[in-house]
Nucleic acid binder design. Structure first.
Lengths: 250, 250
DNA sequence: ATTGTTCATATGTTCAAACATATTGAAAGT
DNA sequence: ACTTTCAATATGTTTGAACATATGAACAAT
């Protein structure tokens, strides 16, 4: 029997929100709050259903959604467990620089954060499809855990977006773009390579020149396939794995 | 009342495959065969359930999955309709080993191709969720352009799939799995790292030990999130870039 | 012509109950 | 020490039934 059962909040049987929805929401919250340890036992369906005063079927409906979203894992007889890695099917979540890191459990912080209005380099001009010599807003970041720089990040925004460079980039980027500029990312084209660290990259990430580094170039497009942003990222690969989940249509 | 009801195939009530799964599979097939026109009416739940001799609940379980996958849309009173197809990463194309290479313009060919029945290593056991000591069918490949090996590839198949090792792996793998074994890949979990080539990898790819190499681990799952295959791939990164496009859901 | 009311209906929610099935873990046999 | 057997048990499947809820359509009132 699951011990912490009494810590689990109850459901509101009088609410207009369906019980299975409430159950799903609660479980989502409990999971993201790490109420259940990863790989650890999860309450049994029968127990949890009893605790919430709902039928096992209703509870299963909620759990099924969480399984499908990759938060939980079910096994006959052994029971339900919290999945190790949270999956990033959701592009919004995926594009978020902060989220990308949070899942790893280690707190990240910026050790460099600079916004600039500058001429784009040739590759950026090409990717964004802007004329030669166009000035663009650029965001540069180095993120670290403690004293170890982990990621170097540089982003260039298409002038069409309307950024001036004086925005507050501390809040999630795509929230800002959506709310302030009504720009919504829909497509993300990614190119990933392994390269040997150049002198410059080695200096940013405080590693040996020549050490393997993961390079990711990303072009973000809106629903009309017009470019929003182009960015380049270098990951210290000895400590970072790039993981995604893709789902097939149909 | 839906007119073409008699054209809809029946289910096998004696099969070991759950009825809701059969129903889901049938509907998937009917939809992709354009049996129902986009935006067009869909059979009513009650009618379809009656046609298949299953309860409405069981049918709803199937339909719910299709709704979640974005193939169908449900509205109270108006009924269920087929959604316009959305573009996402085309996993089928993406998973295909041959396609992956053909796009680059250079003709690739296998310089090593070996199928084996062997005990899985620890990581594979873990990923596939199989007991210790289980024998699995394994496919090993090295592909090259001319004299240059470009990719080392090793794949392990879950015993559930039913491969014996004597299949003809020359034709596209996922065609084989679908047609012969009725196994359809839906999810692909990928982990990508940059690593320094080990002695072994260096030998396979004919590069210097220590040179940066792109490592990709991939776990392929079916619609029920059951593992189909786990594979590891090493790309010569001086000549290979890994590229994908992702589309935001909704 | 516009707005409001009502009714039929398709999906939405929820339940209890029964049986199937895989797997764990312990007991028994080798 | 090893395997085999077996029962307990958590999830998996399926049913039929009942009521809730949103909405299209027909009709009525303004």
């Amino acid at each position: 029997m699951f011990e912490h059962m009494n810590n689990i909040p109850l459901l509101d049987h009088d609410s207009k929100i369906p019980l299975h929805q409430q159950a799903e929401d609660q479980l989502r919250k409990l999971i993201s709050d790490n109420h259940f340890r990863v790989g650890d036992a999860f309450p049994k369906e029968t127990d949890l259903a009893k605790r919430w005063g709902i039928s096992r079927n209703t509870l299963r409906q909620a759990i099924s959604n969480l399984v499908r979203d990759g938060l939980l894992e079910r096994k006959k007889r052994s029971g339900t467990t919290v999945r190790k890695k949270k999956i990033t099917t959701d592009l919004a979540n995926w594009l978020s620089f902060s989220h990308e890191m949070e899942d790893k459990g280690t707190p990240f912080k910026d050790i460099k954060h600079a916004v600039d209005l500058m001429k784009a380099d040739k590759e950026t001009e090409e990717r964004l499809g802007i004329p030669h010599g166009t000035k663009v807003v650029s965001l540069e970041r180095i993120r670290s855990t403690g004293r170890n720089p982990m990621v170097y990040f540089r982003s260039y925004f298409h002038p069409r977006v309307g950024l001036t460079g004086s925005e507050n980039f501390k809040k999630p980027l795509y929230e800002l773009l959506d709310e302030e500029f009504h720009v919504v990312p829909v497509y993300s084209q990614e190119e990933i390579r392994a390269i040997a660290a150049t002198e410059k990259i080695a200096a940013w990430l405080k590693i040996e020149p020549g050490a393997p580094v993961l390079e990711r170039k990303r072009l973000v497009l809106d629903a009309g396939r017009k470019p929003i942003e182009f960015n380049i990222c270098y990951y210290r690969s000895d400590a970072f794995t790039y993981s995604i989940e893709i789902k097939r249509p149909i």
